[in-house]
Design a protein around this nucleic acid. Sequence first.
DNA 1: GGAATTTACTGGCATATACCACTATATATG
DNA 2: CATATATAGTGGTATATGCCAGTAAATTCC
Lengths: 163, 163
Amino acid sequence: MTDDDDKLNKQGQNQDGIWLHCSNSAVRRASRHLGQLYEDAMGDSHLKGTQFSLISQIARSNEPTLKTLADAVVMDLSALGHTLKPLIRDGLVELVPDAQDRRAKRVRLTEAGTAIQRDLTARWQVAQDRFDKAFGKERSQELRRTLAFISSDEFARAFNGND
Amino acid sequence: MTDDDDKLNKQGQNQDGIWLHCSNSAVRRASRHLGQLYEDAMGDSHLKGTQFSLISQIARSNEPTLKTLADAVVMDLSALGHTLKPLIRDGLVELVPDAQDRRAKRVRLTEAGTAIQRDLTARWQVAQDRFDKAFGKERSQELRRTLAFISSDEFARAFNGND
DNA sequence: GGAATTTACTGGCATATACCACTATATATG
DNA sequence: CATATATAGTGGTATATGCCAGTAAATTCC
């Protein structure tokens, strides 16, 4: 084993990389890894982790409009529209026009969507428990709070120097 | 302002959401936000943040094979191949067959790619400096280390209970 | 009240990213 | 050495996600 090899495993995964210098890369890289770990832990479920997250957020919300939901999950409005398409096609989600504002559409889970969300929640909890165990329960909650801060408008203002 | 409104801004962004309970959602949500903030901070550059990260990692590596690079950035091998296509098409990256292992291809920046990577680094540093300022320099480094841990094989083993 | 502006959503296009099946090559095994 | 197996990449398909241009409806401003 050479000196160089000291710093990396056979995949080079621990080598000094851009992710140790760029917070953006670091977060994306972690999201890829977590995506895989959660996906595997939840087992074959017909739904991707992202889709489960989305219907879970819809379930927690009070028939949000597309715009409100997009802001909540920090997603581009049109990206949200695209992402919802497979869920609508498969009958888990429906869009209903808002009674007051005819521009707006409200996002709602169908009965099937509600049922699937409920069923998958148990499997998601398994994955989340594994994360908490591996990372530490306290630390895990603290990390989520930190990430929520990074995802906030307040952070965007600080980042852009508009204090 | 009602009681309910206390917990959310007009976008509902601070409302209790799945991201406060699911580490996977939390990381993905943060990656979407940081993607936007870095992208904006770096200005119009013909390259996406992800593409800059990738060529920066290639620049840091010693002509890695696709597999080695995929492992380093924690990306599926085929996903990496797809992601590289626009960069190859635009002449920033080239794949050269490995001399020893005829299955393997090594990833290399072209002169144009090297030049662009160098030029964009200054703009990336602006974005990273803003992040460090808004988040705290020490805390920022600590976060990147934490995310690197979450992205590691060691964490995957702990997550999967294979200690 | 009507024009100008803002807001909500849609559709098209491009990149990001994963899984699967398939091919080619290398390595291990009897 | 011949075969079995493991490894590296490719191409197809599907979802994820963002930007831009366009439409429609609400709001603002004379």
